[in-house]
Design a protein around this nucleic acid. Structure first.
Lengths: 158, 158
DNA sequence: GACGTATTACTCGGATATGGACTGTCCGAGTAAGTGTGG
DNA sequence: CCACACTTACTCGGACAGTCCATATCCGAGTAATACGTC
């Protein structure tokens, strides 16, 4: 089980977008983070499709958060990039083989699927309780000096 | 994020191994579950390396659980197959780009990594609280008639 | 009948091809700002 | 001086190769049961 690497970039982008009000181009976000610009664009497109950021075209365009960082959960970003399907997919093994369980007795998920899905819900619940604003606050607490403010200034400069 | 498909097979194997005391060959387990025998062998080897099952070679050999099903957590099986590494890997984006955070200020994980790892711990905790014995009990509760007993009988027959 | 040995057939174990998904990249469509001209 | 149209340059968006890991498979090493011959 491995999470898509783009999730990390997308989260960092959302956090830094907290500190600016005007659109920021994907190229500039990529430059800030030291990642491939053309690839980061892919992640930002996904965020745009999910409605988390809004794309502004034309000169001096870019991406802006669509709503307050307090209203954007980390889970929203993760699901936008990595998809909403649960990590565990039940292939109904119980319905195969010589001792297969008859289909009419398989209305409810099997015990294994129930357990795995419960864990999946716990994972998502933990990510739903943390917002982008919380992350921004943690970053501010971690480092002295207004780090996010400086980043915001750099993003809008030149 | 997608969990390896072999996890499902491995879990089913552990559950059915609950109902027998003698070694069961990988071929027979594959036949019971209607999956590829040569591929299931790979998963069973992983379980063996993790110490969850013991392999018995030679004629009438196979695999046996090494300890009581009550002492085998679902998490043990998942980690044996899918690895112990967390799903989120932090590539230290904060240390890259023009506004990179100096390495000496990066002793602790960043806020994003902390959040993702906390969710990972919640996921693993949920899987650690359920044992193979619990799964077996759930299966017994789901269906009337001693399903696992029948499966065990089939496994040792012929 | 009992023992020892060789055979045999069955098991696991690691090394080997194949497929799909994530990673990384490119160029075209569209838009807003800037510029120059005319009134 | 102001309004308008045009040019321009910059943006996003979807379509295109490369690379890595999970999937699926094969054959060889090892072992316990079995069959056989001998005492």
């Amino acid at each position: 089980m491995k999470l898509s690497g783009g999730v990390e970039s997308a989260l960092h982008c959302c956090v830094v977008l907290t500190s600016v009000a005007e659109p920021v181009p994907a190229t500039r976000l990529a430059e800030l983070h030291g990642v491939s610009g053309t690839y980061l664009a892919k992640q930002l497109q996904a965020l745009s499709r999910a409605g988390l950021v809004q794309s502004v075209q034309g000169k001096s365009g870019g991406y802006v958060l669509t709503r307050s960082p307090k209203e954007i959960a980390v889970l929203d970003v993760v699901e936008a990039i990595d998809g909403r399907e649960p990590a565990f997919v039940c292939t109904e093994i119980r319905q195969r083989g010589p001792l297969a369980t008859p289909p009419e007795a398989c209305a409810a998920p099997c015990a294994i699927a129930r357990t795995m899905h419960a864990a999946d819900r716990a994972w998502r619940a933990a990510l739903r309780e943390v917002s982008i604003a919380d992350i921004a606050r943690m970053v501010g607490d971690d480092y002295d000096g207004d780090v996010l403010g400086k980043v915001g200034g750099w993003l809008v400069s030149g």
